[in-house]
Nucleic acid binder design. Structure first.
Lengths: 339, 339
DNA sequence: GCACCCGGGGCAAGGGCTTTCCTAGATCGG
DNA sequence: CCGATCTAGGAAAGCCCTTGCCCCGGGTGC
């Protein structure tokens, strides 16, 4: 690998001059030398060693984000927002997939710290796990103590800048809509109970139902993996145990799609016999049949905001941005069947 | 940020010893000192500076991949395969999104080179663009000349290790299936014509049709963006210009989903009146209505193989692995309507 | 014509870590 | 009991780049 001094030697200048030409330093260099250096760079196909560069200027360039899984459309959208802002500001974004493993999340915090990233963004849901929370906060605190910036997306037990989708309000919207449609026996396809996302959405839903005089007994809530198959399996279990349900609330769109598949397999017409709702409004939500009634979260916007928070110098007080959820009515929700 | 010498000082040892303890060097260190060092590490929350570490040992750890867009399910799946193998071998994977911009692809090659990654994997389709091809090959050659490993996924004009999905054969499978079903007037929703993926799939399709005595005139092929909206728009245009088509072949699943949406909007029953086929067999393909008849490509496997090729020492001759495509019959393709 | 200034270039000091080589003390054999 | 052999730990030389500082020579002002 050609080094800077190779270039300098070939151009007949000092490494200092070569460096200045290559980095467009403010220090003037004669056109003659500049040309010689550039020629040498081209001939040697020289590319500066990013690590050495990093070490020499102590200027932190990259930013890291820890997501559960980029191939999950939810995170794909969020990441898109993060990317956009990062690129606009000339920052490299390192994406780390925890694959929903808290330990891996911890490891990635260390790794990013080791990479000396300028900021770390936690994009997954928080966990209801005091021990994990303590550990991650400890690591983040150490990072922040040395000037690192942290922003989180979603509710985490971390005091600092945060972007919060209004999951509670979203749950409420769904609940209210279902009541309006006359549903009384409502089943829920929930994600893992340890995620704050799950509990917040559930809390909002329950609040709305209670307001309208309905209840949501625990046995009508099925906790499963936050993915398609989790949704499908939970739907089957729910249907068998609670044949009276007229509406199934999935706590994200992916699970809702699984529910739709399970219902189709049993030839249950949606929404005529059973209503299904999702959450997140992923792009695919409008393309399944029936198109999903869901709650839109401004995913890209969330990513963009989080990156802005992370890159703008921190205010004295933690900044928390609450992003509104919005009901999207499509075809998968209908009036409760009269029986 | 605590440094190694901070740790060493606190533990009352030399940086050399501290380093040895932390990295588990083979050189023996007394338990007494080891314990002191580890305690200091914990107290200071020390994390080694990855850049300095890199510089000191000239051992290349990370691997880079350039994809078009991770949020595209096609690449999400491929990336999952790459990740798995990379993690198994203790490698960090850097994911770069070119967003289908060839210039950005070039930039990322430089960037990864600067990061001194052990290998670069090009996961997007190749381009039919001699100038671009020349440039990228030049940069890759320079990289390989210094010991860098390169693997490509898909057909690129790059001689070296490659994993090739058998796009041609896949196109053939679709063509044969449609002929079997009696379709004669077939329209195509193609991706950008500059992509080798597009032309290869198209070539296979055309070959099959020709063999069965059908033709595929250019005016029944619509080139559009390889995404949902591209598919929807092209479908509308195709329907208007060629009302006689009984089958629409989308060259990837995303476009097929767009086609389904456009047909639904026009209340055209699928597959009764028009058959639609996709390509790739993304996870969502089975969950749209009607479920997509498509061609399965072993996407995860492709990623895994590519990573293996990249990490295993190169053979003398370039290794090319051709991965078979497989027809997946679902509900979106049916017999041609009798008229 | 002299002191000064300033533009253009190079020297060298890091930046944080690994690793080779060396040293000093302990151990062992004769 | 002394030299040979180990052993654990430390000193220091890089890895590649940036940048503050210094230096040299020619132009400026009075």
């Amino acid at each position: 690998m050609a080094t800077l001094s190779d270039v300098a030697r070939r151009a007949g200048v000092s490494p200092a001059t070569a460096s200045r030409v290559i980095n467009g330093s403010s220090k003037p260099v004669t056109d003659e030398l500049r040309a010689r250096v550039l020629r040498a760079v081209a001939e040697l196909q020289y590319v500066p060693n990013a690590h050495a560069q990093f070490l020499a200027r102590s200027h932190r360039g990259a930013v890291g984000v820890i997501v559960h899984d980029v191939s999950d459309p939810y995170f794909a959208e969020v990441t898109r927002g993060l990317q956009r802002v990062a690129s606009d500001r000339g920052r490299l974004l390192m994406i780390c997939n925890s694959y929903r493993d808290p330990d891996r999340e911890l490891e990635y915090v260390e790794l990013l710290r080791g990479q000396q990233v300028a900021a770390i963004i936690l994009a997954g849901s928080g966990y209801h796990d005091p021990e994990f929370t303590r550990l991650v906060n400890e690591k983040l605190a150490a990072y922040e103590a040395t000037g690192g910036r942290v922003a989180v997306i979603g509710r985490h037990e971390h005091s600092g800048d945060a972007v919060m989708p209004d999951n509670r309000a979203g749950g409420r919207l769904i609940g209210t809509e279902l009541c309006r449609l006359g549903h009384r026996v409502i089943g829920v396809l929930a994600g893992p109970a340890v995620l704050t996302t799950t509990t917040d959405r559930l809390a909002g839903l329950r609040a709305a139902l209670t307001e309208h005089g309905r209840d949501l007994p625990e046995h009508r809530i099925r906790y499963a993996a936050f993915d398609r198959d989790g949704g499908a399996e939970a739907t089957v279990a729910l249907l068998d145990a609670e044949p009276a349900v007229t509406a199934i609330v999935a706590l994200n769109d992916t699970m809702a799609i699984g529910a739709l598949a399970a219902l189709r397999a049993r030839s249950v017409p949606v929404p005529r016999q059973v209503t299904v709702t999702g959450f997140d409004d992923m792009p695919i939500a409008r393309d399944v049949t029936p198109a999903l009634t869901t709650v839109r979260l401004p995913l890209v916007e969330m990513g963009a905001r989080a990156m802005s928070l992370a890159l703008d110098p921190g205010a004295a007080a933690p900044r928390v941005e609450l992003l509104a959820a919005e009901l999207v009515r499509r075809d998968s929700a209908g009036p409760a069947p009269v029986r």
